[in-house]
């Protein structure tokens, strides 16, 4: 394997069928720590299903998923999230009626501990905790200069690109070790997308391992350290971008569709 370091996440023979459809079939994968791994593949090749399996929304019928040495398949999503996996969704799923800052605070949900009584009595610890959460949320917001001054805007009033950005920040707010990005550049124009990819590299530089889905080859070329190509629920090839993009099967599926 070309993985430079101990993998953060390992998949072994993970399989998920829907009725007769094999969405993901005997998929094995190592996600190297501290790098950006890109998953490419045509629509319907099982990329998003793979994300849903990793984040616990689906339970695989076979195989195992190990995150930082700990099996996580079969754990409910909120448990997986608490262990350090955060994600975005292909079609943005923010809490639309809530403020930008509140979305980030929800992202921190797992790190906050105050329960019912603390909130009702407003204990000193509760105030301190809320205050520091608010502070880190505000700091986090500075990650994207485009979001300056939006903290008390209701999310649904933001532009599309900014909603994508908030969604990424919400995931970062959870302080994940592994960040799953499902087509983060979808719906953005070329300039915006290029900018976003630079931002994703900045995320990696903060020490977060990134696993990125993209079906557009050109988008992924500049950003991924490691690329995995999928088709029909199976891994076709993995390696550096150049290696993968020259693979005949990958060429075939992309020349066919583009």
């Amino acid at each position: 394997m070309s993985a430079p370091a101990e993998p953060v996440l390992s998949l072994r023979d993970v399989t998920k069928h829907f009725g007769g459809v094999r969405a993901v079939n005997r998929m094995s994968l190592d996600v190297p720590s501290g790098a950006i791994t890109g998953i490419i593949g045509p629509n319907g090749s099982g990329k998003t299903t793979l994300f849903n399996l990793i984040s616990g929304i689906y339970e695989p019928q076979a195989g195992e998923i190990v995150f930082r040495g700990r099996p996580i398949h079969g754990e409910p999503p909120h448990r997986v999230s608490m262990l350090g996996v955060a994600r975005t969704f292909q079609n943005i799923r923010l809490f639309n009626e809530m403020l930008v800052i509140e979305n980030l605070l929800v992202g921190m949900h797992a790190q906050l501990l105050s329960g019912l009584w603390a909130a009702g009595l407003r204990t000193r610890r509760f105030i301190a905790e809320e205050q520091s959460a608010l502070q880190s949320a505000i700091e986090l917001l500075e990650f994207f200069p485009e979001l300056a001054g939006t903290h008390d805007t209701v999310v649904k009033n933001l532009s599309y690109a900014n909603r994508r950005r908030v969604e990424i920040l919400r995931a970062l707010a959870a302080r994940p070790a592994l960040l799953l990005l499902d087509e983060p550049a979808a719906g953005m124009n070329t300039t915006e997308a290029a900018k976003l990819l630079r931002d994703i590299r900045r995320i990696r530089d903060r020490g977060v391992t990134v696993l990125l889905i993209e079906h557009n080859m050109s988008v992924i070329s500049g950003v991924a350290d490691h690329v995995v190509a999928m088709d029909q629920g199976e891994k076709v090839v993995e390696g550096s971008f150049d290696e993968v993009s020259r693979h005949p099967k990958v060429l075939a599926s992309y020349l066919g569709s583009d």
């Binding site: 616990g56 929304i57 909120h78 999230s81 608490m82 799923r93 923010l94 929800v106 992202g107 949900h109």
Partner: peptide, 11 residues
């Protein structure tokens, strides 16, 4: 607002 997204964030 979004049950699935909420579940994915530790709720």
């Amino acid at each position: 607002e979004d049950e699935l997204a909420a579940r994915s964030f530790g709720i």
